[in-house]
Design a protein around this nucleic acid. Structure first.
Lengths: 149, 149
DNA sequence: CACCGCTATCCATCCCAGTTGACGCCCTGG
DNA sequence: CCAGGGCGTCAACTGGGATGGATAGCGGTG
C-alpha cells in the first residue's frame, strides 16, 4: 500500500482562507487598494474559463467555505498568478519533493533498474540480497557504514 | 490585472481521468495487479481523512466526473503518494510520471536501503545482483515482464 | 440632508459533486 | 454446471458546493 500515513493533525496549518487572504493583501491592482470580490469575479468571467461568484469568493476568504472544486481552484490560482498547489497543504508536497530529490541522487541507471526489480520481493529476500550487496561492497573496498536514514 | 490569460492551453491537455488512470496502472500493491476501487476507498477510510466512495473513484477514472473538491484531490494524491499538483500542472505530472515507478518502489524502506547500498557498486556486480533478483522474483511467482513504458 | 454609487455581508435557492444501493459480469471451487 | 464472492458498472437520490438577489454600511456630491 502506498501512503496511508495518518493525515497530519488539524493543527494551525495555514488554512485556505488565510492563503486567499494573503493573496488579496499581496497582489493588488495598480493603485494601493485591494481587489474587490466583484472585480475578481468579473475578471474571471472575462477570462472565459470557469466563473466564480463574488459571494463565493468572499465565503472562501472568510473561511465559511473551504472545499472548492478543482476548476475553481484553477481559476483562482490563475487569476492571482500562483500555482494551484499553493492552496494545498505543503507538508505532504514537501515530503514527496524530498523523495523525488532522493531519486535524482540515484543517477546510475543500473541501480535504478535494480531497485525497480527488487520492488515487491518479500522482506526476507530483500534482506538476503541486501546482505549480499553488503558483502560485495566489502569485496570491492567500499565503505560499509550502515548509516540509518 | 494579474494573470487573466485563458486557463486552458491550446493543446490537448492530459485529462484528470488519464492521470488517475496512469496512477492506477503504475502504482500497484505487492502482487502485480492494480488496486481495486474498493481497496482505495477502504484505505482512505482507514487513513482517517476524508473518504471517497469507490463508485466515485470509478467515475473520476472514467472521466464521467472531472471536477472533484480540494479535499478529495488531497486524499487521492495522498494515497498514490504524489503531490496534489500532479493533478493540476501537466509539466510537473510528466516529471513525476518519469520517476513514478521508482518513486513507489523506493517507498519500501527495505528497497530503499537496498538501493542506497547498491549505489557505487561496479557495473558487473550490479548486473550479477540484478540477475539474482530476477531469479528470486521468479521463485516468488512475481511477473518477469519488464513493464512497458 | 437626500441621493447615488460601490462594496461587504447575509439569506434563500439551485444544481452538481458525491453517495447509496442494485445489477451484471467474470472468476473459482464444489 | 451451478452457487457464491468479488469487482466494475449503472441509475437514482442526497447534501453541500455554488449562485443570485437583497440588505446594510460608507464615502462622495450637489
Amino acid at each position: 500500500m502506498p501512503d496511508t500515513s495518518p493525515t497530519d493533525s488539524p493543527d494551525t496549518r495555514r488554512t485556505l482562507a488565510a492563503k486567499l487572504n494573503h493573496l488579496f493583501h499581496t497582489v493588488h491592482p495598480r493603485d494601493g487598494g485591494e481587489y474587490s470580490f466583484e472585480e475578481v469575479a468579473e475578471a474571471l468571467r472575462a477570462a472565459g474559463g470557469p466563473t466564480i461568484s463574488a459571494t463565493y469568493i468572499w465565503q472562501l476568504r472568510k473561511g465559511i467555505r473551504d472545499n472548492p472544486t478543482k476548476r475553481h481552484l484553477e481559476a483562482l490560482a490563475g487569476f492571482f498568478g500562483v500555482p494551484p498547489a499553493y492552496f494545498f497543504d505543503d507538508t505532504a508536497a514537501e515530503r514527496i519533493d524530498a523523495e523525488l530529490a532522493l531519486l535524482t541522487a540515484i543517477r546510475d541507471t543500473h541501480v535504478r533498474q535494480l531497485a525497480l526489480r527488487a520492488a515487491g520481493l518479500s522482506p526476507r529476500s530483500l534482506n538476503a540480497i541486501t546482505e549480499m550487496i553488503e558483502r560485495v561492497r566489502e569485496l570491492e573496498g567500499l565503505p560499509d557504514t550502515t548509516e540509518k536514514s
